[in-house]
Design a protein around this nucleic acid. Structure first.
Length: 260
DNA sequence: ATGGTTGATTTTCAA
C-alpha cells in the first residue's frame, strides 16, 4: 500500500477551499497537513472536506495561524494539538497517528527579523519541538514531520544565496542549526533523498512577480524518521496550484511512501 | 529605493 503525504500552507482556508478541493481531486493525497488556515474551529469547513472523502481534525484561531490534518486512508488517532508542556497562545501544531505512523504538522514561527522578540520565540519554539519529538520518537519510531518550517535548509533552497545568507531571517545560522538539531534526532528531508538539485522552491512572495521569475525559497518540508527512510519512493513540490487564480503563496510539498 | 502584495481586520499587522 502506497501513501502520498503532503504539506500545504494555504494562507487562509476560507479563501483557498476551492483550490484545496480541486487539488485533492487532482493529486489524490492520502494524508495532508494544512497550515495558516486562519479560521476559528467553529468556522472550519469540515463538511466540505469530509464530502471530498477525508477525515479531518483541526486546531485553529481567529485571524492568524491554524493547522489541520486530513486522512483518507486510516483514522486519525491520538490527536495532539500544540506542543506538550509548551504554553503557546498560537495554534501552530497538530499531530495524529495514522495506521501506526505518527504524522506531525507544524506551522513554524516566521520570526520577522533576527534579534526581535518573534525571532527569540521562533528559536524557543523550535527547541520545544525538538524536545517533544525526541520523546515521541520512542513511542512512534515511524514518523513524518511536515509543515511550513519557515527555514530554508541550505543555499540550494534559495534563489539568491548572497541575499539569503546567515544574516537573513529564514536562513540565519541559529535557525538552520535549530532545524539541523531536529533532524539529528533521526530525520531526513524527503525531498533531498531524491533531488540534490538547487532552485526548486515551495514559496514565492506575492510581490515583484516572484513566482513568474522563480524567485522563491524551499521552506515547506517533509521529514521522515529513520524507520521510514527506506520506504520513501519519491518526493516533490506541486507547482500547479501556485499557477491558479488567486493562489496561496506556498505550493504543496509531498512524499510518497511504499508499504510501511 | 525599506518599495512591492495578499489576507483578516482596520484605521494596521503579519507574512
Amino acid at each position: 500500500m502506497q501513501m502520498k503525504i503532503a504539506s500545504w500552507n494555504v494562507n487562509s482556508l476560507n479563501v483557498r477551499l476551492p483550490h484545496l478541493l480541486q487539488w485533492l481531486a487532482d493529486f489524490q493525497p492520502d494524508v495532508v497537513g494544512l497550515q495558516e488556515t486562519k479560521l476559528e474551529d467553529a468556522k472550519f469547513p469540515a463538511a466540505a472536506i469530509q464530502e471530498a472523502g477525508y477525515e479531518v481534525v483541526f486546531h485553529g484561531q481567529k485571524t492568524y495561524n491554524g493547522v489541520a490534518l486530513l486522512s483518507r486512508s486510516g483514522a486519525l488517532q491520538d490527536v495532539q494539538c500544540g506542543i506538550p508542556g509548551f504554553d503557546d497562545p498560537q495554534a501552530r501544531v497538530i499531530a495524529a497517528t495514522v495506521n501506526g505512523m505518527r504524522i506531525v504538522n507544524l506551522y513554524v514561527v516566521n520570526g520577522q527579523d533576527i534579534g526581535t522578540e518573534k525571532y527569540d520565540y521562533k528559536l524557543r519554539w523550535l527547541a520545544a519541538v525538538h524536545d517533544w519529538l525526541a520523546e515521541d520518537l520512542k513511542r512512534w519510531p515511524k514518523m513524518v514531520v511536515m509543515g511550513d518550517f519557515n527555514i530554508a535548509p541550505d543555499a540550494r533552497d534559495v534563489h539568491d544565496p548572497a541575499v539569503w545568507d546567515q544574516t537573513h531571517i529564514l536562513t540565519s545560522s541559529a535557525e538552520r542549526d535549530a532545524l539541523a538539531r531536529i533532524q539529528s534526532l533521526g530525520f531526513s528531508d524527503a525531498f533531498r533523498l531524491h533531488h540534490p538539485d538547487a532552485g526548486v522552491f515551495s514559496w514565492w512572495d506575492y510581490r515583484q512577480a516572484a513566482f513568474r521569475r522563480n524567485l522563491g525559497l524551499r521552506i515547506d518540508l517533509t521529514l521522515v524518521s529513520d524507520a521510514l527512510k527506506n520506504t520513501v519512493q519519491e518526493a516533490g513540490i506541486e507547482r500547479t496550484p501556485r499557477t491558479w487564480e488567486r493562489p496561496s503563496d506556498h505550493a504543496p510539498a509531498w512524499l510518497q511512501l511504499a508499504a510501511f
